[in-house]
Design a protein around this nucleic acid. Structure first.
Lengths: 227, 227
DNA sequence: GTTTGGCATATTGTATACAAAATGCAAGAC
DNA sequence: GTCTTGCATTTTGTATACAATATGCCAAAC
């Protein structure tokens, strides 16, 4: 016996509801700050309020929702400061992932990453933004996988999701895009050279650029001083 | 008007239940791996199953409980690897907190920390372990406060709670205790000197020592290879 | 005109009832 | 004796009913 200890996935209603809500939030169908009416939403999702409320608790734990006692639940609306703080922590986490990756990376991993990098550059040169984002995500996930620390991966993922909830197709102008691709090249080079400190620097710089782009998007969308 | 936007605290039942459970888990009254029967526990806590289940969801999000669909909820039982991974991430987070703190610390902060350090050394020299732990916690919280990044603080706290759940009054022998106190001295010195890299090193070393102590405790308590 | 108080309504919080699934045991087959 | 099968029981999952709280409106007071 031993079916690999992985029972076939059967989502419970709260989990399914949470999954659905997560998507709605990230895609922006549920806007930041939006108040969620339990009865209404439960009817829309076709579940009763009980599992929906459990879904709320899960997403609140992930920082995607905010719950106020007796006043309901709303989609989190991150302030400029929140975004700054989150990106700072992301930077620290990814830098650490880089360090771990340096100590564990194999030549095979590097070959894989180089292949992905080539794909990314192809997407870049044909100006295919969606494909670029897609590969970008794969590369960062891959780095985390090489670091081989599930706690780190989970923490990173949770924070990243919260940031995605800003539906930040950030205004990535050509100059920034070029820079990002170049940083990715540096990243793989540092990893291939097993140069931890260099990788740290690249990753932190990379994250800071992303942060900058998102903050600029926020500035364009809402008035300064706003929430 | 502005009552500082802080409404007077009125805990809802799920929150109160979660709080209580958290304490029970950390104090070890609910042992790692223990299965939690909903009906039984709800009767013991004097609430119905509905709010208790919401409490379960919250604590699962914090990583203190594990929920298996249709098989109930149990207290998390961290493996050796889990502990290693968690400590690694804690180290990265605390090192980053140190960096931030260096850039923001005031002379007043340092005076406060020196006072706390003196208290800690007093507790150390009269072999008062509980007092030592208490002050130790205050100091680390203080460092986080100086870093002034709420996202970082929250992430750190969550992880730290999970580790506390190991009920690790780790076997802190005299040599290790001496070393820990010395590291704290170095920590404050590096902070006072505004030396970020030095503080990083001290904090990571400090965390590694803690990790070591906890892992040794685990080795003594259970058989190797075990969960 | 502004503020206060009270009521009607809407919404969240909690308990309970019912449904579905898992568990354990016992009887039968081999 | 061991393995399977089916049933009774327990436990978790979900819906719904009821309670408590918040919200919004309107009237009355100043």
């Amino acid at each position: 016996m031993d079916g690999s200890n992985i029972p076939i996935a059967r989502l419970t209603l709260p989990e399914a509801a949470a999954e659905r809500l997560r998507t709605l939030i990230i895609e922006g169908a549920l806007a930041p700050g939006a108040k969620l009416n339990e009865r209404e939403l439960s009817e829309q999702l076709g579940v009763s309020r009980t599992p929906l409320r459990e879904a709320f608790r899960m997403l609140a734990g992930d920082g995607l929702l905010v719950q106020l006692p007796n006043r309901g639940t709303q989609v989190v609306a991150m302030s400029r400061e929140d975004v700054q703080h989150a990106f700072e922590v992301m930077g620290a986490l990814e830098a650490f992932a880089g360090e771990l990756a340096v100590s564990r990376v194999t030549d095979g991993d590097i070959a894989d990453l180089r292949a992905l990098q080539a794909e990314m550059e192809a997407a870049h040169s044909r100006h295919d933004l969606p494909a670029y984002y897609q590969i970008n995500r794969v590369i960062h996930d891959r780095l985390n996988a090489i670091a081989a620390n599930p706690v780190l991966t989970h923490t990173y993922r949770t924070l990243n999701t919260r940031l995605h909830a800003l539906r930040f197709r950030s205004n990535l102008n050509i100059a920034k895009w070029n820079q990002a691709v170049a940083e990715h090249r540096d990243m793989i080079a540092a990893l291939a050279a097993r140069d931890g400190p260099a990788l740290r620097d690249v990753l932190i710089k990379h994250l800071r650029a992303k942060q900058q782009a998102v903050l600029e998007t926020m500035n364009n969308e809402k008035m300064p001083g706003g929430n």
